[in-house]
Design a protein around this nucleic acid. Structure first.
Lengths: 350, 350
DNA sequence: GTCTCCTGGGAAAAGCTTTTCCCATGAACG
DNA sequence: CGTTCATGGGAAAAGCTTTTCCCAGGAGAC
């Protein structure tokens, strides 16, 4: 009973050859007589046999493991996606390895290489990719090596790579948000835009600007402030807006945690949200749903993104990359009740 | 250049035997002549050789992977711990596999078995364990099998298993919190206590009660309401408190997300925190730090917990389980400014 | 009745590394 | 100068599974 039973033991107990035992257990193309199969399975049960995945991986060339790469697992956005991936993987009997780049996007390629060495069956790249050409090229090269080795790759919110991709409709979402805010009467916007080379951030900014343009609202260049994609980035960008921009009605932060930082910066100035300034975010992070005022944001079903990515991997196509577009939905909260009465009145008069 | 170079290729190019090549690359006990080692390393570099981890795992009996089991990766508490584990693992060149039980604690044993099959080098059990005897026994049995196979196991916030453990001083933290709240003048507490069979929840409740007792404050049994360890659990438990308990000053929720739910429940009644009721939590989740009012809570350094767990695994002891106690620290926020003026005055008078 | 084909079982190789065991060379020691 | 070690290199086995190839027996066809 010490150690682990091997397939050899099972075969011996069942009185068959290794080949038959393997075929009975794995259900290969070759059929096994019902009687023998029964015997093998009983022996396996009795010995509490579990296959040695290392040996299997060596022989098959890949392990039943999917690797996942996220910028930061502690960010609720990515842990939400990871949660969806893990749930779907569990249903398929797959293990999930997670690597966090800690927002150093150049490490993504490294981790893909690492997963290749691990002979993982698939890799899911989550998170907002960089727009830096050199990095994308390096990543693409690693992805190709991974695929050359027989692996499958999928991405979430990333359409720069020739792989199956779950795209969050960042543009559409931000555009709808802008439309709704304009409908509420806001006219003087500022945007906390995240890093300049982050695709997700860029898409949300572009969409937002487009939505405003639809309503004939212009977004001045100096009202767009770049910053880190994090809570602190939002705080600092907001400080800059407060210092430099006059007459701002409503601030759009390209993600929820930036919005959170922005609200803190506003309060640090002893101003109130939404009395003095309205704020909107993007993502609808669950821990923020109970915040008061309720943050206006754009809901993304994070778990669904993860699940879709895994499903794409399993149904891996005939080589031509597919794209699944996932819409998102505006959630209006009390953080954007409409512009201050004063300005609305003056607008009505004018 | 197609496929991957094997150690055999390296040996051939370097003009040495497999044994020498392996020894040069892995730095075994046997020394390799400087000249040959140099040749081997150059050949490996040239061929872009990377060892086949599956073959290595098979031979060595374990893979350089640590498995981690959490109740819910989307919960910021656990993703924080996971983040610490992953950071430390990365520094050691280890991969991390994560499994989420989705709060079904009976699945923990299953996942330990899964990691055993994967021949993972170690397992980290994170999260608040059940007090159910049968489940603990089953888990202990699986842990022993894992260790029998040569693996190491560590736990975070769990002292029911004979393994290296990072213990969060839940009792101490809750006790200090109770003391501070009592010092502020609160006397009429209610506790949203989480599931009855959850050790973490129980410890926090016990510590809180002890802290109150230190100040001569009694916590009546009917002021303790059990509920799920989640946001919704907090909401429901709070509803029950609002419906059934009179004269409550201050509510202690045994974790932050429950506190969040509680605050929502209070607001749903059109009451204000902290004007009508004060609320405290436990955990100091980062996304909640910007909430207004600032939630009074007990800070736990989540990343540190994860890092410590991994370090314990690497320095795996001589068999006798070690315990690292991690203190936590009370953070007083505006959600508990002290009891309402009215009651404080009457207390002063009486 | 013989030949061919198909089904299902088994032996053995392959997959890649690590490690044991053996061997040769040169140094140290008596 | 002969014996004994220590050092470093190589051949080969082990670790466990999957899969190819071979083979035997039975069924069907002519």
């Amino acid at each position: 009973m010490e150690g682990n039973a091997t397939l050899f033991d099972v075969a011996r107990v069942a009185g068959v050859s290794l080949a038959t035992a393997s075929r009975a257990i794995n259900g290969s193309a070759r059929t096994v007589g019902a009687e023998l199969r029964e015997k093998v399975l009983r022996a396996a049960q009795e010995l509490d046999y579990s296959p040695n995945v290392a040996a299997r991986a060596m022989k098959r060339g890949h392990a039943e493991v999917v690797g996942m790469i996220v910028p930061d697992i502690a960010d609720p956005y990515f842990s939400g996606i990871a949660s969806g991936v893990m749930k779907a993987a569990d249903e398929q009997g797959l293990m999930v390895s997670i690597a966090s780049t800690r927002r150093q996007s150049e490490r993504e390629a490294e981790y893909v290489a690492g997963f290749r060495r691990q002979r993982n069956r698939a890799v899911i790249l989550a998170g907002s990719r960089t727009t830096s050409r050199a990095e994308v090229d390096r990543l693409r090269a690693e992805v190709e090596r991974f695929e050359a080795q027989g692996g499958t790759v999928a991405a979430v919110s990333q359409r720069k790579l020739p792989v199956d991709t779950v795209v969050v409709e960042n543009r559409q979402g931000a555009r709808a948000l802008a439309a709704d805010l304009a409908d509420l009467g806001y006219r003087d916007f500022a945007v906390l835009a995240g890093p300049r080379d982050l695709l997700t951030a860029k898409d949300r900014l572009d969409g937002f600007r487009a939505g405003l343009a639809d309503h004939g609202v212009d977004l001045a260049r100096e009202r767009i402030v770049n910053g880190e994609f994090s809570r602190d980035g939002g705080y600092q960008a907001m400080e800059q807006v407060l210092a430099e921009c006059d007459g701002v009605d409503c601030v759009f932060a390209v993600n929820d945690v930036m919005a959170l930082g922005a609200i803190s910066a506003i309060r640090a100035r002893r101003l109130d949200v939404p009395r003095h300034l309205s704020v909107a975010g993007f993502g609808d992070i669950s821990t923020l749903r109970d915040m008061s005022p309720r943050l206006t944001t754009v809901r993304v079903d994070l778990e669904k993104l993860g699940r879709l990515a895994l499903e794409m991997i399993l149904s891996s196509g005939d080589g031509v990359p597919r794209t699944h577009r996932e819409k998102c939905q505006v959630v209006l909260g009390s953080s954007t009740p409409g512009p201050k009465l004063a300005s609305r009145r003056s607008a009505a008069r004018g």
